[in-house]
């Protein structure tokens, strides 16, 4: 029994993970002091000039950075909304398919794009959405003039949101299907006895049983309000659409890594991290309160 009380093996087991966390999560957090410096790589953290909140003031004064924040919000919020609504509807429709083979095949196909990287999908989309590409040839059959999906500021956000929903809606359906699988079949039987049509059953049984998980998913998505999807944008955008398509993460990459404005880049990154953290904490609190959701 003595062995059970000893906890040193626990600490040993956690050591490798804790070292990794320290090096790659906590050590970088120390670097956020760069946000308050005019950081020069050759001067280092201790030698660089302190500038207080100048980087943050600069962030709100520069027109391009404000535009980038706006772009991020618009793209991220629209993605959140459609990535919730479309899987919700898709799950209801899929739930009506009674042949398991058909249902399984559909599921297999719609989950697939989630696992491919944006490099692969970006390569395919750049080819397909070109002015003389496959998509425009099909639209041409219906008499639509060629659209420059990835090079036109009026179309870029639309393209980004649609392609993201295309990639993720199948995968996002899983949680809803899981909720539907848990519905007590006797509810439907009782409704049937009472003469309720399938439409009414959907309205009064299927949809209400999906609401708790919808609240959880929707609330937790709050943490992504400043996450417009770096991988996707970076692989789809080009200088023609910076105006409407540039987001915080791609902006940080270009200002800090390409142009070398390290202090300013850190400041924008910190701005995003802090707001995201607050949103995540609030959303988990709400999800716990409303739906009893706990992650850990």
């Amino acid at each position: 029994m003595k062995r059970m009380k000893k906890t040193w093996p626990f600490h040993v087991m956690l050591l490798p993970a804790v070292i990794c966390l320290f090096l790659f999560s906590y050590l970088p957090m120390g670097g956020i002091i760069m946000a308050f410096q005019n950081y020069k790589p050759w001067l280092g953290l201790s030698g660089s000039e302190w500038v207080g909140l100048d980087n943050f003031r600069y962030l709100f004064e520069r027109q391009d950075s404000m535009q980038v924040i706006l772009n991020t919000l618009v793209i991220a919020v629209l993605k959140i909304v459609f990535n919730l609504l479309i899987p919700f509807g898709f799950a209801i429709l899929l739930n009506e398919v009674r042949k398991t083979a058909v249902k399984g095949t559909i599921q297999t196909l719609v989950y697939l794009p989630h696992f491919l990287s944006w490099v692969i999908l970006g390569g395919i989309l750049i080819e397909m959405l070109a002015v003389d590409g496959f998509a425009n040839r099909i639209l041409g059959m219906f008499g639509v003039d060629p659209i420059f999906f990835l090079g036109d500021n009026n179309w870029f956000r639309f393209t980004v949101i649609i392609s993201d929903v295309w990639k993720e809606f199948g995968y996002n359906t899983i949680v809803f299907l899981a909720a539907l699988a848990g519905v007590n079949p006797t509810l439907y039987e009782a409704a049937e006895m009472d003469g309720a049509s399938r439409f009414r059953q959907t309205l009064h049984i299927t949809i209400p049983s999906m609401l708790p998980i919808t609240v959880v998913v929707g609330t937790l998505a709050l943490g992504n309000v400043l996450n417009a999807g770096f991988d996707q944008i970076f692989n789809l955008y080009n200088p023609l659409v910076y105006e409407k398509g540039d987001i915080i993460d791609t902006f940080v990459y270009r200002t800090a890594i390409i142009n070398g404005e390290m202090g300013f880049g850190t400041a924008i990154g910190l701005f995003k991290s802090v707001i995201s953290m607050i949103l995540i904490l609030v959303s988990y609190r709400m999800a716990y309160k409303w739906a009893g959701y706990r992650i850990f």
Binding site: G31, G269, S273
Partner: peptide, 11 residues
């Protein structure tokens, strides 16, 4: 839920 961002990570 929190990270230092791209630049400090790079450093």
């Amino acid at each position: 839920i929190f990270n230092g961002g791209l630049v400090p990570f790079y450093i």
